[in-house]
Design a protein around this nucleic acid. Structure first.
Lengths: 220, 220
DNA sequence: GTCTATATGGAGATAGAC
DNA sequence: GTCTATCTCCATATAGAC
């Protein structure tokens, strides 16, 4: 809507870049706003003029990440047909993008409280989250999976939660090359696919009836 | 091992009680160590002499909670026979105990990082955690459930995780009387029991084979 | 609107009194 | 060992220069 306010945008980007470089190098906790400001070549107050808080910088990183990944993911989704391939397209792109930034992601996972401005579950992050859920919805819809009506409407949001769990585990996974996360991902993905495949068997009726009743209230 | 060092124990308890009262009233975040110390009638340094950090106070609360609950839970377990009743005995006692302390529990759930001294997943909290897992092990063992060998050894730890998830959800559940958590609990507990009941069906073989492979690496 | 300089209040550390 | 007084460092707020 605005007439390209170039100068301030450039400054904002400079702060963000400086901060991210620092956070990547030393981790979020051990970096100070003074260092961020100095590294960006300005006073602390200037950094606060552009970002409400230290956390807000991480939030900006997420917004940027989302923007930079979405086109590529959409393309990958166009090429993949099976549900497995489509889910992998979304999830693996995320990990690829986040890999160099693992040390700064702890900042986010520290805020489970939805009231906190940078919680991934709060209203401040709703736009990013819904865009993200939409990717999973696309992955599911165009793969043509059949699921009981009780859980089908919630599947994309459940997959988003699943992905958040994976990322959380990965952030604190200190095994070499995060091999444990790799395994967690591979095994749970298979389990998920098997579960979806057999979900409509009459035997499992009681399970998705319960799940449906639950989801209806949780997501309301 | 020590000869009852009464004086320091009394001071420590006084600080803990003052802190918990404050945390309950105003929440953990909004309370300061200065207030805690003043409320306990001493200088800030004294509080730090007894507790390494503000977080450490919450940790002490957990240790106390564990100690105060375990006898009662053990008794309840002696009276309950079915797996459902036994699991309820453990889980519901926790919620009953924690209910007046909901506002101070946010402190704990904020530390997913196992490296952090007060993370529920770190080594500093191992003793409490293992004692807690042992309660679930008792609940399962003496209920005589039959499960595939692939997952049976991990069941208690999985149930502990399940409980942690419930508590986390509950801490940030602002619905009246935490009704949503109530529902989450009732529905997922039923789902869990149904799942365990049908777990040995040949149809589900691929699922617990995968689960077994996963758990073996995750818990190692 | 953009940014600097300076202030505030809190967690935690430390020196040393007793 | 127990505790007070004081210090440091940080996130964040604010006054006001340009």
């Amino acid at each position: 809507m605005k007439k390209t306010p170039r100068k301030s945008d450039e400054t904002r980007t400079r702060i963000l870049d400086a901060a991210l470089a620092l956070f990547r190098e030393r981790g979020f906790e051990r970096s100070t706003m003074r260092e961020v400001a100095q590294s960006a070549g300005m006073a602390v107050g200037a950094a606060y003029y552009y970002f409400d808080s230290k956390d807000a910088i991480v939030l900006a990183f997420y917004a940027r990440a989302q923007a930079e990944m979405s086109a590529g993911i959409a393309e990958s989704l166009d090429r993949a047909t099976t549900l497995e391939a489509r889910l992998r397209a979304v999830i693996e792109r995320k990990f690829e993008y986040f890999r160099p930034n693992r040390r700064l992601m702890g900042a986010l996972s520290a805020h489970a409280d939805p009231e906190h401005p940078v919680s991934p579950f709060g209203k401040e992050t709703r736009a990013i989250r819904e865009e993200d859920v939409a990717l999973f919805e696309r992955a599911v819809t165009e793969s043509g999976v059949k699921l009981p009506d009780t859980v089908r409407p919630y599947l994309a949001r459940l997959l988003w939660m699943y992905q958040m769990g994976l990322i959380l585990f990965w952030v604190y996974d200190n095994s070499a090359g995060q091999k444990r996360t790799e395994l967690l991902y591979e095994k749970t993905l298979k389990m998920l696919l098997v579960t979806l495949k057999i979900a409509r068997l009459p035997l499992l009726r009681p399970l998705h009836r319960l799940a449906g009743e639950l989801l209806q209230v949780i997501y309301s």
